[in-house]
């Protein structure tokens, strides 16, 4: 049952041609990452140097210390925003994954009336521009009395059509014969969901987790439209105000540092989850 190891143990000559093919692409694709890391450590004169430089020459931590000093001087500590962001992100990702996998299982494998209609509604919802439903969403939040409540960060993002579409596509690939075998052995639908479907679609769940996390973590809409109380807003919003409010010479350094801080969680999560994407038991249990 052990998953395949991703990396071969040794470097072999046969790998050389693939690496040669990939390397130039890697350089292009890695550019924004290198840029963002370099940018955060640039001292003031390098940030505004003309022509702009790509790599940092005299690296400093000046930007970070400025950022910390600035957040200390404002009324609400940085830790409060961080706490908000963490709570919101963890709950949203968990809930969204639970709901999407459950409904993906139902939509792909259980026959019931209105299944096709629900699928179509979901597909239409994917296409729709999210800014256009902003005001109706605001009214719904108002009616539910969730203004300035952390739930207003969570609920609008829990039903994510793109994630459902993705997971459903994977559940459909789970062979029916496997489910039938489980039914014959007396499994209930819940058993099948937990013990057959979930292990089989783990790579899809990991992918969906990365997607949802990215959406939630970078989401500023909820903070700026559903909240008037500053202490309930998220870190992303705070970082963005730093960039916009202090759109001055001094603010640029802080903005660079802030964008690195916002970027790091994505990096860490991806490093953790990318093994899950690969170590799948492909088609196990079927001959």
């Amino acid at each position: 049952m052990k998953g395949r190891k991703i990396n071969p143990k040794r470097f072999e000559i046969g790998q050389l041609k693939i690496i040669l093919l990939i390397l130039p692409l890697v350089i292009f694709m890695g550019m924004p990452i290198i840029f963002i890391i370099n940018h955060a450590f640039k001292p003031m004169e390098e940030l505004f140097a003309f022509p702009p430089t790509f790599f940092v020459k005299n690296a400093t931590l000046e930007n970070f210390s400025k950022l910390i000093k600035f957040s200390d001087s404002s009324g609400i500590p940085l830790s409060r925003y961080l706490f908000n962001s963490l709570v919101v992100t963890v709950i949203t990702v968990g809930l969204a994954l639970l709901l999407t996998t459950m409904s993906a299982f139902a939509l792909a494998k259980i026959k019931f009336k209105g299944r096709n209609a629900l699928t179509h509604i979901n597909q239409i919802a994917i296409m729709f521009v999210s800014t256009a439903v902003l005001i109706p969403r605001y009214l719904v939040i108002c009616k539910l009395g969730l203004i300035d409540n952390l739930l207003a960060h969570i609920l609008p993002l829990v039903a994510m059509p793109v994630a459902l579409f993705l997971v459903k596509q994977f559940v459909e690939q789970v062979p029916d014969s496997l489910l039938e075998a489980a039914y014959m052995d007396g499994a209930t639908d819940l058993d099948i969901y937990l013990k057959v479907i979930m292990p089989m679609i783990r790579p899809a769940v990991a992918t969906a987790a990365i997607l949802v996390f990215q959406q939630v973590w970078t989401n500023m809409e909820t903070s700026s439209y559903f909240f008037s109380d500053d202490s309930m807003k998220t870190l992303t919003f705070y970082m963005n105000t730093l960039v916009n409010v202090n759109n001055t010479v001094a603010g640029q350094g802080m903005a660079a540092a802030a964008s690195l801080i916002m970027f790091l969680p994505n990096l860490i999560l991806f490093i953790i989850l990318q093994n899950k994407v690969m170590n799948t038991m492909a088609n196990s249990g079927i001959k």
Partner: peptide, 23 residues
Amino acid sequence: ARMGYIFMIPWFIGAAVFLAYPL
């Protein structure tokens, strides 16, 4: 079919309130 509905309900409520109604 009822199991299907049970599995769908949580998502359906979320989608109805925050997607279908605003749409």
